[in-house]
Amino acid sequence: MNAQDAAPIIVPLMVPFIDGVARKVRAVIQKRVGPSIVQSWYDLLSFLRIECNSPVDSLTFRLAPYIAFASAIGMLLFLPFGEKAPFGFEGDVIAFIYVFTMFSAAVVMGALSVPSSYTSAGAGREVTMSIVFKPLFAVVIGIFAMKTGALTIEGMASALKPSISVLGAYLLLIYLTYVEAGFVPYDIAEAETELLGGPLAEYSGRLFAIMLWAFQIKRFAMIWLLASMLVLPFVSGSTVLLFQCGAFALLFLGMVVYEAMSARYRIDQAVRNGTMALTLGIFFLLVGWMGW
């Protein structure tokens, strides 16, 4: 089994350790001892052994974590590990956008199926963020597709050449990745100290573990997408995967460090920043359409 085929199996097992590294780095920056890097795995295993104490008899509430998890795995299937994606096909970027959006839809559906002010507030914030940042992602991908004529992630990344619109799209993708990865100050929907986890507030036991695991996989997928878009235009052959891992590590640690020094935004601040980014994205799309 090569790296491309094994990635959807290996990555879900790795992401709790990666989350543990993030927790350790944040602790060091904040001058705390912090948990072990395997603590996130211990937490998941502990929750997986416990039945969920469901607050409502709702099929939507019970299915939402599984849909979110499946969506996160689906994102992995279309990402290049090396030069090829496990399930890559012509137009897979459209499928990636679909499962990327489905993840947020599952989180919102699960939250709204419970009569709780915390989950309702979290769902409202998730919808508001999606209205701003999902179109931004589509615009960025549209710029890459327009400049390369490709509709596969690896095809776009491998064919990108420097231009004003492409450089602008890269900057917006870095920003968007940070937001969609759920780092502070953009973890507004969950906001543990404010909304007790928002959409996750009423989940417990096994369902909470699956939802938490799905968020960790989605974070990995978004940063790996960015790493691939940065590496594939310049590297080919057997060393691609090594460079992707290196780029992922640098991006992930950089985002964790920034998060440790940041305070959470209000929803209006996030929307204002997102609207400005979307406006810039449309501008760069027009610039790219004009050939620059």
Rank of each mutant, 00 (worst) to 15 (best):
M1S: 13
A7P: 00
P12H: 11
P12D: 05
L13Y: 05
M14V: 10
R23G: 08
K24W: 14
R26W: 06
I29M: 11
I29S: 01
V33Y: 08
I37C: 02
V38Y: 04
Y42G: 12
F47N: 04
L48K: 10
C52R: 07
S54R: 14
L63A: 14
A64S: 15
A64H: 10
Y66W: 14
Y66C: 09
I67P: 00
I67Y: 11
I67R: 01
A68R: 08
F69N: 05
F69M: 12
I73C: 09
G74Y: 07
L77R: 13
G88Y: 02
F89W: 10
E90V: 15
E90L: 13
G91E: 13
I94L: 14
I97P: 00
V99H: 09
V99C: 03
F100G: 10
T101I: 14
A105L: 15
A105T: 13
A106Q: 00
V108F: 09
V108M: 14
A111F: 03
S113R: 05
P115R: 01
A123H: 04
A123M: 04
V127N: 06
T128L: 15
I131M: 05
V132E: 04
F133R: 08
K134Y: 10
K134V: 15
F144G: 10
A145N: 01
K147Y: 08
T148F: 09
I153D: 07
E154N: 14
L160M: 02
V166S: 08
V166L: 12
L167M: 11
L173T: 01
I174Y: 05
I174L: 13
L176F: 08
A181T: 00
G182R: 02
G182D: 04
V184A: 10
E194R: 10
E194F: 06
L195G: 08
G198T: 03
G198E: 07
Y203G: 12
S204Y: 13
A209S: 11
L212D: 12
W213Y: 12
A214E: 05
A214R: 06
K218R: 07
R219Y: 02
M222C: 11
M229H: 00
L230C: 12
V231C: 11
L232D: 01
P233W: 02
F234Y: 12
F234L: 15
S236I: 00
L242Q: 03
F248R: 04
L250F: 14
L253D: 04
G254R: 12
M255T: 02
M255L: 11
Y258W: 14
A260Y: 08
M261V: 08
S262H: 05
S262A: 14
R264W: 09
R266Q: 12
I267W: 09
D268T: 15
Q269I: 06
V271Q: 09
V271T: 11
V271K: 06
V271I: 15
N273V: 03
G274E: 04
G274T: 07
A277W: 02
A277F: 03
L280Q: 12
G281L: 09
I282C: 12
I282Q: 05
F283I: 15
F283T: 09
F284V: 04
L286T: 13
V287C: 06
M290N: 05
M290G: 06
M290I: 11
W292Q: 15
